[in-house]
Simulated scan of single mutants.
Amino acid sequence: MKAAVLREVGKPLQIETVSISKPGPREVLIRTKAAGVCHSDLHFVEGSYPHAMPAVLGHESAGIVEAVGSEVRTVKVGDHVITCLNPYCGHCEVCLTGHLNLCISSETRRSKTDEPRLFREDLSGAGDTRMAQFLNLSSFAEMMLVHEHACVAIRKDMPFDRAALIGCSVLTGVGAVTHTSNVRPGETVAVIGCGGVGLAAVNGAAIAGAGRIIAIDRVPAKLELAKQFGATDLINADDGDPVKQVQELTGGGVHHSFEAIGLKATAEQAFRMLRRGGTANVIGMIPVGVKIELNGSDFLGEKRIQGSFMGSNRFPVDMPRLVDFYMSGKLNLDALISRRIKLEEVNSAFDELKRGELARSVIVFD
């Protein structure tokens, strides 16, 4: 099968022929139909986060079940599915207390002594042919082999390109609002960064009934796009201190802020723009080794800052609900897709991410 492979940090992905294993116990073979190009992938391409190489990238995807291994109970051949990068075992402490997104059990992956899920044929008989699976998925490929708890079946009238977005950006943004920070009707919200995740957070805040939703970015086109997702106020960060602007708009600060970029400065701004008792949520991937600085006295006002990983999701329940939200017109996925591309165009999609011009490019497989 064709796949986009990262072989060296900072270098373009290479389109290669990669082999995929047959499904073992609890595993599902999926024919990839669509895969979003996410900024998280770019973090690994640029080396902000380490990963074993060579690796087939991609982690935001939807497809059709081609085959299942023994003991698989959750999906069947022919099911349309959305994948999720955080598979869960179902019986560790975090799973049993309802935090499926935090499960790191090794039993959802193959061991180092097992045949790898992805590999390259080595006709010479020399060298290691293993390919690293990226975030338990590797969806920049025509097929995926995953644990059954890394996907969920959805209704078949859901378009694959929109469904793929639910696999990461939408689940992350909406979930941060509804699960991590528990936004209540009438509360005020600020979202820093109007890329795919930030726009999903804006949409999630609108669905949750937030009274005021302030979108913050430096790109006017993205701010205008945020209106379509439910933003009530727009702030261009180039027009002055966004913290001061938020405080003036809200009379002291917001109840909830969401940082969707992954920078030290914006994480600190998210905390500073809170009112007393407010909660700042860092969704963006701050590079390894970077520290943020906060004023200790602000904690006397019961202000909180916390991380949000994949929207604190329970994806087997959340993803089908998000599909229903889209099909009923409550969730705006159409405007998230800037363009649809072929696998061979993946590097151009990364170039656009670096420029910060578009919301989302989606790879569509025939």
Rank of each mutant, 00 (worst) to 15 (best):
K2I: 00
E8W: 05
I15G: 02
T17L: 07
V18H: 05
K22A: 15
P23R: 10
E27P: 09
L29H: 06
I30C: 04
T32R: 05
H39I: 09
S40E: 06
H59A: 01
E60Y: 08
A67M: 03
R73K: 15
R73P: 00
K76N: 03
H80V: 02
I82G: 01
T83Q: 07
L85M: 15
T108G: 07
K112M: 14
R117H: 15
L118M: 06
F119T: 04
F119M: 03
S124Y: 00
A126Y: 07
A126I: 14
N136G: 06
A141I: 03
C151I: 01
R155A: 13
D157L: 04
A164S: 09
L171G: 07
A176R: 10
A176D: 04
V183W: 00
R184N: 13
G186N: 04
E187F: 03
A190F: 01
V191F: 04
G204C: 01
G209F: 00
I213H: 05
A215Q: 10
V219L: 12
A221H: 13
L223N: 03
A231Q: 06
D233M: 03
L234S: 11
I235T: 05
N236L: 00
N236G: 09
A237C: 12
G240N: 07
V243D: 03
V246M: 08
T250F: 00
G251Y: 02
E259L: 07
A265P: 07
E268A: 06
F271A: 02
R272T: 09
M273F: 03
L274W: 05
T279E: 09
M285W: 15
K291L: 15
D298V: 12
K303D: 11
R304D: 12
R304L: 11
N313P: 00
V317P: 02
P320Q: 05
R321C: 09
L336E: 11
I337Q: 06
R340N: 13
E344D: 11
V346E: 03
E352Y: 13
E352R: 11
E352D: 15
L353Q: 02
K354T: 09
G356K: 10
L358F: 14
R360Q: 08
S361V: 05
S361T: 12
